[in-house]
Computed example of a mutant assay.
Amino acid sequence: MIPLLLTFSDGQTLEAAGSVVVGRNPHLHQLASELDEGPVDLVTLVDPLKSVSRVHLAFGTFDGVPWVLDADSGNGTRLIYPDGSAFALDSGVRYELDPGSRVEFGSFSALVG
């Protein structure tokens, strides 16, 4: 399995072998049915402004292709591909990611390596 490489705007970096759940207080309960089997990393973001939901989004890979999913967050999630095309994600839908894609959520972002 190819690891998923993520660099967050707060300086955290992660090389994940499975799914990743991101938020102010991430947990699996809300997303359990959306995640693939395997290990799950929880990434906690310190966000005093509460621009990020407790469980905001998830990342993972399927057949070696990375994906992102908005977890019905309050402020939404935006995907920006390396070519500059950008759009808001529909909640609960997986979107494929290209290396170099940037995912913006609240006052944070994550770069896909």
Rank of each mutant, 00 (worst) to 15 (best):
G84R: 10
H27I: 09
E96P: 07
K50S: 14
R54S: 14
V20Y: 04
D72G: 10
Y81Q: 13
G100Q: 13
V22Q: 02
P99V: 07
T7V: 03
Y95S: 07
D98N: 01
L89C: 04
S85W: 00
E37Y: 01
G60R: 14
E104Q: 09
V21E: 00
T13Q: 15
A88I: 00
G113E: 14
S109F: 10
P3D: 12
E104I: 01
A86K: 05
D41H: 10
N75Y: 13
S109C: 03
A86N: 11
E37C: 00
Y95T: 04
G84C: 03
L28A: 11
D90I: 11
D10L: 00
L69W: 02
P82L: 01
Q12K: 15
A88T: 13
V46Q: 03
F62N: 11
L49P: 13
F8Q: 09
V20F: 00
S109W: 08
R102P: 00
T61L: 14
V22C: 05
L4E: 04
H27G: 14
L31H: 01
R94G: 06
L111T: 15
F62V: 09
L42H: 10
E104L: 08
L5V: 10
S91C: 11
L42G: 12
M1W: 03
A71D: 05
G38R: 11
A71K: 06
T61P: 03
P99Q: 11
V52A: 00
V68G: 05
V46L: 07
I2H: 11
